[in-house]
Design a binder for these strands. Structure first.
Lengths: 242, 242
DNA sequence: CAGTGGTCTAGACCACGAA
DNA sequence: TCGTGGTCTAGACCACTGT
């Protein structure tokens, strides 16, 4: 009752999908060329490409121009843990670029500082093995950030907590999650299709004095990412329920 | 340096996009038929349809089979507030369907109850004006849920807190956020394109005794939804940093 | 019924990647 | 260079919606 006559591209996509899941096509392997597949299924190339586009949207297939269509490795999902703490993804290689700039517009609003305030930007690109897995732009008020470029090797993605040691401790982390298409730059850095949406997380960390310590703009591929947030309600909040 | 020669569909999409934003095409209006647009831009119909597909992916245009392409109303974004409390979207009409069932598989795991335990399911479809805006399946252990069907009119989407009045208070809410394509059922209930991804939030609420009170599977259209999570760190957690 | 979008074809030509 | 995917065409036919 649900589907009547599935269109050809769906039939083909279903067939390819099952061949992938049964192992006829293995992870990392190249599929036959689109022309060959079109001939095999007796359809025109646009139709076959439509079928592949379905699989691509599901994250099962990766197209590489001039080279072929590849079965993607079963996606190792990354769990982003909210609340500031917990890198949780220990085994990620992170490359960092440090830039000094001044607060403007949206950024100044997020950090609640005056326009023109000095900031330090960390652009962090984390890799899981060979493939990139997340992109983060982290902004910290200049006086809280170390002046020297940080050591490159093992840096947790959650930076802010480590920086301000003798400062007032972290009190609150607010994270806004939304979904959008990646910018062309983001798509190329993360090596994802520009049509695959990303999880965009805007994170603002505040210390006990109410000062914003960090603003982070995180971009995570939506097909490989879960985000988990745990809220523990205090006794005060609970009694306020009545 | 970024884009060399944008493909025709992008040029067309850009043109239509600007015509929409400048008001040449107004919200809710029907666009000229695809054949007319194709003639106007001097391209074939598949090319023009590709351009429209771009706008559709951005949520700017809605296609209705046999009727036309329509400019979507500027999307009123819904903010989902994590942490259990705060309906926050007061002015939503919610229709609820109540079902009794028994825990199985994943659901039993989430609620940490034995397979076969009696549960009550609330299927909540919330509307914002005419258009549906969220779908929720909420599962509550049968002994915590009222036996009679709840009054239909104003029901906050966050149900669990209201149900168990004399029970141990809520202590912790854990929410897992992921992005996926909607099932055909979800797409039709939410009246969104099956190609537009949804935010899927799995929420488990636990009371002070550690018992799981509620498991909720929420589905929200990704182009109209932000989710905000605020984590307040307790003194204990802060001192554990050192 | 007429008009709309949905699917598909059989080819052409372009752009990219590897040898 | 050659094989790959990327874009586009001009038209056919089907499926849905409203009159």
């Amino acid at each position: 009752m649900t589907d009547t006559v599935a269109s050809r591209r769906h039939v083909i996509a279903d067939d390819l999908r099952s061949q992938i899941s049964t192992g006829s096509f293995k992870a990392g392997e190249r599929l036959p060329s689109e022309a060959q597949l079109a001939a095999r299924y007796g359809v025109s190339t646009p139709t076959l490409r439509n079928a592949l586009a379905l699989l691509q949207a599901e994250g099962l297939v990766e197209k590489i121009h001039g080279t072929g269509n590849f079965v993607r490795h079963p996606l190792r999902r990354i769990t982003y843990v909210g609340g500031g703490r917990t890198p949780s993804q220990a085994a990620l290689h992170v490359s960092i670029r440090l830039t000094k700039l001044r607060a403007r517009g949206h950024l100044a609003t997020l950090l609640r500082v005056a326009t023109g305030s000095p900031l330090t930007e960390f652009r962090c690109l984390s890799h899981d093995g060979t493939s990139p897995h997340s992109l983060a732009h982290i902004y910290v008020p200049r006086d809280l950030a170390p002046d020297d470029a940080p050591a490159d090797p093992p840096w947790p993605q959650e930076v802010a907590n480590l920086l301000p040691k003798p400062f007032p401790p972290l009190a609150e982390v607010q994270e806004k999650v939304s979904v959008r298409l990646p910018t062309p730059l983001e798509a190329s850095l993360l090596r994802i299709s520009p049509t695959l949406p990303v999880l965009a997380i805007t994170r603002v960390a505040t210390d006990t004095t109410g000062r914003a310590i960090e603003a982070a703009l995180l971009v995570l591929p939506s097909d490989r990412t879960d985000a988990v947030f745990t809220t523990r309600l205090t006794t005060d909040e609970r009694s306020a329920d009545e």
